[in-house]
Amino acid sequence: MIYIGVTGWGDHDIYPKGMASRDKLKEYAAHFLTVEVDASFYAVQPARNVEKWVNDTPADFRFVVKAYQGMTGHQRGEIPFSSKEEMFEAFKESLAPYRESGKLAMVLFQFPPWFDCRKENVAYLRYCREKMTGYPVALEFRNQSWFSSSFRSQTLRFMEAEEWIHSICDEPQAGEGSVPTVLKATDKKKTLVRMHGRNTAAWMKPGGKYWRKVRYLYCYNQEELLEWKQNILKLQKQSKDIYVLFNNNSGGDAAGNAKDFIQLMDIEYKGLAAKQLDLF
């Protein structure tokens, strides 16, 4: 099956005017059957939040949960855990409602641009995989070295051997802090595709108050979506379920592109939630 959705459900143009934030996931699930949970990157989520999200979505809905920032070396701000052991255990506890409901698609470990291909980092990936034994986990790199001509084959073999789901990216090609699109599934059951847009000018220019808001400012055109239709058809021959998440939402384009792509792939989802009535 091909699951198509977006990253996060907070800010999109699919909601009735004036809809409260607490009701948005219910409405989101009337349009898409998968979503990336970004809140889990910034803080390990309390059970009450996850239970609400699970209860707000239909039985066929699936969550891609982003790994907590301390687990991937971002560490923006204080990490409220005394050890990595404690941090991983707390994160896994937060996944319980997803697992119990059968709605956990995978956990996404997205590593930062400075996480390059070297022995210490390979060892840390092994550590993460061991700590997440029994969980479906996806791996996304942001450093080009992993897919250089010297390491690409080894990286893919490593991911297969360690049972990492490949998170394949469409993103600007802007030096060592970006990765090429590598159309190779490493798991026969699941593959993740994340569409970051192609805003090369903003991709590798960190700094400034609004950098993160413009980094994903991009709208895919029909030709680019057709290109990705062919890519998905190739990946379908390698992996049973494909998850496609649009992350190009700096200008509000992600949901529209995701809907366009659903139509382009000739998909009609069953099991969506009922749309909320727009009274005002």
Score class of each variant (00 low, 15 high):
97 P>S: 05
235 L>Q: 02
280 F>D: 13
52 K>F: 10
133 T>G: 00
13 D>K: 11
231 N>H: 07
133 T>A: 05
11 D>Y: 15
112 P>V: 08
151 F>P: 01
124 Y>L: 04
75 Q>A: 13
128 C>E: 12
32 F>V: 13
27 E>L: 08
107 V>C: 05
65 V>F: 02
164 W>K: 04
27 E>R: 04
119 K>D: 15
46 P>M: 09
223 E>Q: 10
174 A>E: 14
139 L>G: 00
189 K>P: 01
84 K>H: 13
82 S>N: 13
71 M>I: 04
5 G>R: 01
173 Q>S: 12
277 L>K: 14
103 K>S: 06
261 F>Y: 06
48 R>M: 08
188 K>N: 14
70 G>A: 10
91 F>A: 03
23 D>E: 14
78 E>S: 04
118 R>M: 11
234 K>L: 15
151 F>I: 12
25 L>T: 07
204 M>A: 11
79 I>S: 05
38 D>H: 09
135 Y>H: 01
195 M>D: 10
178 S>D: 12
79 I>M: 14
94 S>G: 08
61 F>G: 06
93 E>R: 13
154 Q>K: 07
69 Q>G: 01
123 A>N: 06
153 S>R: 07
20 A>F: 11
263 Q>R: 12
182 V>F: 03
181 T>Y: 03
78 E>T: 09
2 I>D: 13
46 P>Y: 06
103 K>M: 09
173 Q>D: 13
138 A>G: 08
41 F>I: 12
93 E>D: 14
107 V>M: 03
238 Q>R: 02
62 R>Y: 08
260 D>V: 02
88 F>D: 05
200 T>A: 15
72 T>S: 09
186 T>H: 03
55 N>C: 05
140 E>F: 08
152 R>E: 14
152 R>C: 14
278 D>L: 04
119 K>S: 14
189 K>S: 15
264 L>W: 09
112 P>L: 10
155 T>A: 01
206 P>I: 09
18 G>V: 06
111 F>S: 06
140 E>I: 11
57 T>L: 01
44 V>F: 05
253 D>F: 06
131 K>N: 07
113 P>R: 08
198 R>S: 02
248 N>D: 09
75 Q>S: 10
121 N>V: 03
142 R>D: 00
275 K>V: 11
15 Y>I: 09
133 T>N: 07
257 N>H: 05
216 Y>S: 00
52 K>A: 11
204 M>Y: 04
170 D>S: 11
240 K>N: 15
114 W>F: 14
46 P>W: 08
227 E>F: 12
59 A>K: 15
71 M>Y: 03
167 S>E: 02
133 T>L: 00
206 P>V: 10
161 A>N: 14
19 M>E: 12
117 C>E: 07
95 L>R: 02
145 S>F: 00
72 T>K: 02
203 W>H: 02
153 S>I: 11
66 K>A: 07
241 D>T: 11
